[in-house]
Structure formats: structure tokens, C-alpha cells
């Protein structure tokens, strides 16, 4: 990889934010599986596998699955966040393979958040 200059940092930020923040023309949906040790211990691997499997089955390319760290609420792991374009992210808790697949079909594919598994809606960024 080439060494970064300060301009490169800005360029990367601009180019990559379309993927990161779900802009028009990029990905339509983003699924974040929280995979800290607490999540993995509670079965986040199965959730991740289910999500990837469903994407392959549905044969779609406009959804990205991300692995991320502990979501903070270790008591309700495994957690996953589903974000559709132009919609606030919905965080689901206490997931398993079956629930993950249901969420994928209902929320990611059809756009209806699955209320019974949802923990919270919104984004907790402060800055």
C-alpha cells in the first residue's frame, strides 16, 4: 500500500463514507453483528452465518454485513443492528439463527422492522 498523506486521509473519508453511511447509489442496507467476546460467547457467530447465508440465498448485492465490537449491552447479546437507507438503525437483541433469518427477510428484504425482537431504534453517536 502507498503511504498515506494528509490529503489521502480526506480522500478515503470522502470515498468510503458512501459505503459507511449508506448513500444513494451505494448499498441499500447494512447489517452490523456485534462480535465482542460477550456476543461471540452468546452465539453471534451463528447470527453472522445466518445473515450471510440469507444474503447468498436471496442472491442480492446491495446489502453489506459488518462485524463489529461489543455493543455495550452485554446482558442482551447477541446484538445486531440493521440499518436501511434513509431510515434510523434498529438494534435487535438476544438473537439466534432463526430470529436472524426472520429479521433478514422481514426487515432487510421487505423493510418492516421486526418489533418483537427489537431493542431500540436510533443512533447513539454523540459526536
Amino acid at each position: 500500500m502507498n503511504k498515506f498523506s494528509i490529503e489521502d486521509l480526506k480522500k478515503i473519508k470522502e470515498n468510503y463514507s458512501a459505503v459507511f453511511n449508506l448513500k444513494e447509489g451505494g448499498y441499500r442496507a447494512k447489517v452490523i453483528v456485534h462480535m465482542g467476546p460477550c456476543g461471540v460467547a452468546a452465539g453471534a457467530n451463528k447470527v453472522l452465518k445466518a445473515m450471510v447465508d440469507e444474503i447468498l440465498k436471496a442472491n442480492i448485492t446491495d446489502v453489506i454485513v459488518k462485524r463489529s465490537s461489543c455493543g455495550g449491552l452485554c446482558a442482551r447479546e447477541p446484538l445486531a443492528t440493521v440499518e436501511l437507507i434513509n431510515q434510523p438503525p434498529v438494534r435487535y437483541c438476544k438473537l439466534n439463527d432463526r430470529k436472524a433469518r426472520e429479521i433478514f427477510r422481514e426487515h432487510v428484504l421487505r423493510g418492516n422492522p421486526v418489533e418483537k425482537y427489537a431493542l431500540v431504534v436510533g443512533c447513539e453517536t454523540t459526536c
Binding site: I32, K66, C70, G71, G72, T81, E124, T125, T126, C127
Partner: peptide, 12 residues
């Protein structure tokens, strides 16, 4: 969230 501002958002 200041220290943990990226928790669960980025792929580390």
C-alpha cells in the same frame, strides 16, 4: 460516548 464513540459501529 466519547471513548466508545465507535463501539459497535466500525469494523475494528
Amino acid at each position: 460516548s466519547l471513548v466508545l464513540r465507535n463501539k459497535g459501529m466500525i469494523n475494528p
